[in-house]
Design a protein around this nucleic acid. Sequence first.
DNA 1: TGAATCAAGTTGTCGCTTCAACTTTCGCGG
DNA 2: CCGCGAAAGTTGAAGCGACAACTTGATTCA
Lengths: 168, 168
Amino acid sequence: MTDTPWLDRRQMAAWVRFVAVLELLPGVLDSQLRRDSGMTHFEYFVMAVLSETAGGTLRMAELAAATNATLSRLSHVVQRLEGRGFVERVPCPENGRVTNARLTVDGRAKMRVAAPGHVATVRRHVVDVLTPEQTEQLAAISEAILESIEPSGPMAAGYRRHDGPHGE
Amino acid sequence: MTDTPWLDRRQMAAWVRFVAVLELLPGVLDSQLRRDSGMTHFEYFVMAVLSETAGGTLRMAELAAATNATLSRLSHVVQRLEGRGFVERVPCPENGRVTNARLTVDGRAKMRVAAPGHVATVRRHVVDVLTPEQTEQLAAISEAILESIEPSGPMAAGYRRHDGPHGE
DNA sequence: TGAATCAAGTTGTCGCTTCAACTTTCGCGG
DNA sequence: CCGCGAAAGTTGAAGCGACAACTTGATTCA
């Protein structure tokens, strides 16, 4: 740690290109969704996660873990989504300190309309420009990076290998 | 485009993991630099690009292209960096509408202090968790993604094949 | 030469994220 | 049971980036 070797030429080249992706890709996703559906990619992702759960409901903490967000960020976002009628917040009756976020009918409809354009964007800029092998490689690379991040990340792990603390 | 196929299971898995990286990694980079050096990753990157040019000087538009930023964003950032004494803005005498950004002595010193910790972070979370082959793969994947983005991106390409900074 | 056009930057505003502080609720040991 | 600490959320302030409007200087061309 006290003496970290510099990056060699190949490592540096890869890193610089990767940083460019980190910088540009989120903006591309946001632009498309904002333009076509009036929402950010993060908002879309939050609603997408909800839409895949039974009942379209998830506790805030679990939703935060699933979307890689802090509870604070999620709280603000859900507040905005609630204002637009796409999500509603329901205090859990059994446990006084948990809040359930639930996708509304309007929210589900919104997702049906927004999804095709978003998927097309993901295809155009990522999936379709990679070979099947590269897609596998990207998954493995992402996994390796996440493994080094998440234990100390904004959310302690424990979600990824979901043994289902919340029932299916 | 009117009928885009959904992502299959493997594509979806890869995308979800990659989105997590997109969401978490920038925060990790920012946190370390903010904590140890009081600057953001983007500020660091701007100064790093400057430090690698002869004279530590670059026109705003070129600096924007090299850092994948809009001119607007760069303008704000350089303004802040100037306020802290790390960069100075020098109007170009030959061309009245260009502004040159130059790294100051303080800025260079700042980079010398900040670099090791940043490199260590990049290693810990990216370079050192990948095999050499994966590093090459990441470079190729990034390149493919960028190629699909940059032509229509915030900055038209044309920088990457740099014929020399002050070429005209 | 002079109007139109484009390029290079800057600036102000707004929205989103972060950070820190705070509230409320649950669980646990004494 | 009582008190204390951790868990779950919420909130307000501050900072950064996106966007649009604007200024100013260079080009073009009729």
